[in-house]
Design a protein around this nucleic acid. Structure first.
Lengths: 195, 195
DNA sequence: ACTTGATGTGAACGGGTGTTCAGTTATTGA
DNA sequence: TCAATAACTGAACACCCGTTCACATCAAGT
């Protein structure tokens, strides 16, 4: 078979990651067996080790890729000018991006404790980096007198928790459209920061 | 030994629940073994089955007791008069109560998927009952013109997600006192609902 | 035609899983 | 004193775990 890299199948590899992602999100890392993942892909358990050195690395790579995707996507997202517009951009981006990747989000928030300490440190750092983007917006708005926030770090955590919470109840085709949810949440955030 | 009920030891029983609670919160239900719990208590694994029919029931009872505690505590909590004071009471109650039981909260939010469908339905119903208490406050305030909320259900979910998020970062003896955190969060909620 | 190497099988490895149960111990009430 | 029983042990049960590896398959490159 024609190979471009020294790695393995470009077909089975992604299938393994997708199956693992779906199963980890649904049942939790510890409750999923390598044989389950293999069955989902349509191979025997041993074949998985052509694509990952072990189960822990499989989880870590999923989480790292997700966090990198978030950071890259926010970097590329249109942001507008001024703290108010930037905050709106962030809120809408966060909701939209997370709703598009419910499994990844679930894993990233629930399986931190399943990571080895070294892997945890890596993911935690990336998460903190993302949170800092929001905190910078809040701090800038506070400095300009656009926001009235007693503690920017606390407001950061509150806003992210609130926005991420959408994933726990939102269902496509439900009572509210994604656009409507985005607008309502943005308005709550805007008022919460006193703007 | 003098027994009042037909059940078993009133010493070891609670110890089992506390050990399970701590371990489930720290490592996750699926990652904790009955032998680990037994070791924490200081007995052999077989002895646990004097206090629970199986591992699943142990988890379910922990979660059910916690949810019942939340509902009872809110029922008993001082609430003040009018939607604004009631909302403040709810916010402060939620933060305080949850910060006092970090392990229970962690389990209740993370291990829903580890429950059997029947057990899940029971817990989900209790959770919904709690959420409804908040939604009723919001609806009353909206009706009286004290709040400006486009969608009470959505505001309910947003507020609860925001308040529960405190548990992920708050540390006793940290930069902010619990009272200060309560006040800041309450102010954010108050502004978010337009009051 | 033949070697190469990617892709995968299927059995095995050592160890761990939840759960059961016959038997031991210790304390009790009569 | 002694039968009753709560509390617990320690071994066993049947099965599942992540991971390894000798071996098979088969398309591609020379």
């Amino acid at each position: 078979m024609a190979r471009k890299t020294g790695s393995h199948s470009e077909i089975t590899g992604p299938l393994v990651r997708k199956a693992a992602q779906r199963l980890f999100a649904r049942k939790g890392f510890a409750a999923v067996t390598m044989r389950e993942i293999a069955a989902e892909v349509g191979v025997q358990a041993g074949a998985l080790y052509l694509y990952t050195p072990d189960k822990q690395t499989l989880l870590f790579e999923l989480m790292k890729t997700h966090m990198q995707d978030v950071l890259d996507a926010w970097q590329r997202a249109p942001k507008g000018e001024g703290p108010l517009r930037r905050l709106e951009a962030f809120c809408r981006f966060h909701i939209r991006f997370h709703l598009e990747r419910p499994d990844d989000v679930f894993i990233a928030y629930m399986e931190l404790r399943s990571l080895t300490p070294e892997n945890f440190a890596v993911i935690e750092k990336m998460r903190h980096e993302y949170e800092d983007h929001l905190e910078e917006i809040l701090a800038a708005g506070q400095a300009e007198g656009v926001f009235r926030i007693p503690d920017t770090r606390l407001a950061t955590m509150a806003i992210i928790a609130m926005l991420t919470g959408v994933n726990t109840w939102f269902r496509e085709g439900g009572r509210l459209s994604r656009e409507r949810v985005e607008r309502i949440y943005w308005n709550m955030v805007r008022r919460a920061v006193g703007a």
